[in-house]
Design a protein around this nucleic acid. Sequence first.
DNA 1: TTAATAAATTTGTCCTACAAATGAAATTAA
DNA 2: TTAATTTCATTTGTAGGACAAATTTATTAA
Lengths: 252, 252
Amino acid sequence: MLLISAVNAILRQLSANQSMSEVKHNTLEPLGSLSMTDRVENILREYFKENGLIPGDSLPNEMEISQKLNVGRNVVREALSRLRMLGMIETRPRRGMIMAQPDLLAGIEKVLNPLLLSQDNLKDIFELRLILEMGISEFLFARKTDKNLNELEAVVSKQKDAVVVSREEEVAFHGKLYEMTGNDTFKRFQNLLMPVFEHVFTEYYNKGIHHNIPNPVTHHDLFICLKQGTPDEFRKAMYKHLEVYFDTITGR
Amino acid sequence: MLLISAVNAILRQLSANQSMSEVKHNTLEPLGSLSMTDRVENILREYFKENGLIPGDSLPNEMEISQKLNVGRNVVREALSRLRMLGMIETRPRRGMIMAQPDLLAGIEKVLNPLLLSQDNLKDIFELRLILEMGISEFLFARKTDKNLNELEAVVSKQKDAVVVSREEEVAFHGKLYEMTGNDTFKRFQNLLMPVFEHVFTEYYNKGIHHNIPNPVTHHDLFICLKQGTPDEFRKAMYKHLEVYFDTITGR
DNA sequence: TTAATAAATTTGTCCTACAAATGAAATTAA
DNA sequence: TTAATTTCATTTGTAGGACAAATTTATTAA
């Protein structure tokens, strides 16, 4: 029933493939030749949008879908399995499937394997972190509270004025900053990027292209600046703090 | 063969579930009870990492995996289907499966349906765009070229000093900026965020909370600033340009 | 009317089967 | 012997059947 409104579009999409077995190897297929599973996945996602489904809405059962689309239940299940992975749908035993709130970062999370990503992607992620760190000033100052600042102080007090801090301390400090933006997605996103960032930089650093930064800005300096300064001052300090990284992008 | 090194760990993980049919409803299962497909998906991703597989490496075939893991081929195929969607693996007919370079943003792309995302997620995305726009200055100035600037000029020349520009012009201008960062992932990421950003803002705007910005900074102003100014000046101009959005986050 | 029981529905899992595709092997021709 | 062609074997993609578990719904009993 639920699928009725989409049947026409679906049939249109599938009709070209109905007599697949005869033509598949005759027609010169475009590079992006899609499997049935790919197509069903796309059809379902479009169907969700077209029909304005929202979390909680129930979906037709697997058999109904597979019959309407004229594909095997296996194909439908593979497509649904993908959507389930992304958090778009949930199945409650016997109650059938319902729409859910997808996890925005689930897809990226699973894919963040430095060995698999292209060099370009790795470089992009490296830079993305720098962009983000430079962009959070306004949010930090708009949302800093005494409580937040005290917690941040607790983090930096362990590091004193150290120029070189451990990986854990680095993550603790910047992680706390991300948290203070009040943006959970941003925080999670940054935390995902961090290991990749380090992976890229270590690789780069091991190539022996080092620069000594004259007057390094420590975490403690940043803290003071966040407490007493302005967004612009903080950003300038952050730039200084990250200068060794920024140096890598200007080709120096 | 390829799976041998992982078999022990795998068996350990699966052994608790071998006699599933008898115990499933007796033992109080933790909330995050995983399906076989979920577990196989995790096992495979771990296996990729543990064994340091890189793009091009070939994988065991489906039967081998399903036998080694002692699950049905369907379960294995559902897990593989997920990984294929993320671009982690590819299958070449008859040659079997090989590792591939995953598409970093494929997962997010599929999930960006404003009707499904939580209000929190939508707000986060909205803010993320602002963070990114504020963070790109250094990259723009590091990578601007005469060619780039000319292309940007072509975009703004169509808009003159207009304060209100169409959706297309908005996308064209800012999209060009993202492009000029020289970071393809960033550009793609921003372009994904844009529609969501607009969706959130329109919703917000329709609630009638408007502010007149005294001296609006136009796209043309930004262009001039990028051409002749400094990163800091450009960022200040960008803040002004986006002020109507920033106003929404300070609770005004 | 309420409680207990039976039936029906739907997902998760396993299994079998087979077409298509293609690399490898075998066979044939020069 | 070598080259070309044919045959064979392997692996994925797809279809479809079967059944257990779980839970909603319907039915029956008190």
